[in-house]
Structures are given as C-alpha cells and as structure tokens.
C-alpha cells in the first residue's frame, strides 16, 4: 500500500478521494492548495499525488509543473471537471502533456479511480521514460 497526497480545494472531494483510498489500505495526506501540496511533498514525498486542476491561488497545472521540477520522479493523477472556457477534457490533456501519469474527469466512478491509482503506482514515471529513451 502506498503513501498518497490528495490536493483539492474542495474539502468534500478530498474526503471522497481520501475515503476511497484509505478503504483499500493506502495512507493519505491532504492539502487544500498547490503550495501546501509542495510543502507536504518536500517534507514527506508521496508515492502518488492526486490533484485537482482548477484551484484558487496555485492551480493544479502550476502545481504539476513545479512539483515535477522539484520531484521529477513523482507520479501524478490530475482530476478536473472543467472551468470557464476550458473544458475538462482540454485541461486534462494539458496536464497529461505536462507530465501527469494519468488523468480523471469528474464525475468519476470510485471503482475506476481505485483501478487507475493501482495502475499509476505500478507505472514508470515520465522522467524514467525520458531517461530510458536517451
């Protein structure tokens, strides 16, 4: 079982994700913003980060970029329901292009999230793949 960081400004979505992950045996820490997530990762790096995209202050994409700069071997799952003119699909594709291991659109099926988490934990990071390609 893994140590997982959940970053979402919505406490209810955090509770949902954390509850699902804890139920299958993972250890979960939470942050309500990207800056807090970075501090958590610096203090105690998680094996997987699940982050919302649209958050006030530091949004998920900025968090993802900064996180992968400082912790290039991080595995990240980005979640979004879309906001403003940016729909969920586009924002999640951006996250994928920026190095997210996987993406999840809201609303999500809990069983599917658990499967994606298991798959992400077993997958190689984008940094690993880039090193292997050289």
């Amino acid at each position: 079982m893994a140590h997982i960081l959940v970053v979402d400004d919505d406490e209810i979505m955090r509770a949902l994700l954390s509850g699902m992950l804890r139920h299958v045996g993972h250890t979960v820490v939470e942050s309500d913003n990207g800056q807090g997530g970075l501090e958590q990762m610096n203090a105690y790096p998680a094996e997987l980060v699940i982050t919302d995209i649209f958050m006030p202050e530091m949004d998920g994409l900025e968090f993802l970029i900064t996180l992968l700069e400082k912790h290039p071997d991080s595995k990240v799952i980005a979640i979004s329901g879309g906001y403003k003119a940016v729909n969920a699909c586009l924002s999640l594709q951006m996250a994928k292009a920026l190095g997210a291991t996987d993406i999840i659109a809201k609303p999500f099926h809990t069983a599917a999230v658990i499967r994606q988490v298991a798959y992400a934990l077993q997958s190689k990071t984008i940094a690993y793949r880039r090193r292997a390609e050289r």
Binding site: I12, L16, G19, M20
Partner: peptide
C-alpha cells in the same frame, strides 16, 4: 450504492460531508 461498496466503513463519514 457504488460509492458505499467502494468506500466501506468510510462511506458514512464521506456522506456527512456531502
């Protein structure tokens, strides 16, 4: 029901938030 199955003992706590 799907959430209840996937959340187990955590379901009621999460439902309190909802």
């Amino acid at each position: 029901t799907e959430m209840r199955e996937e959340l187990g003992d955590h379901f009621l706590l999460v439902m309190q938030h909802f």
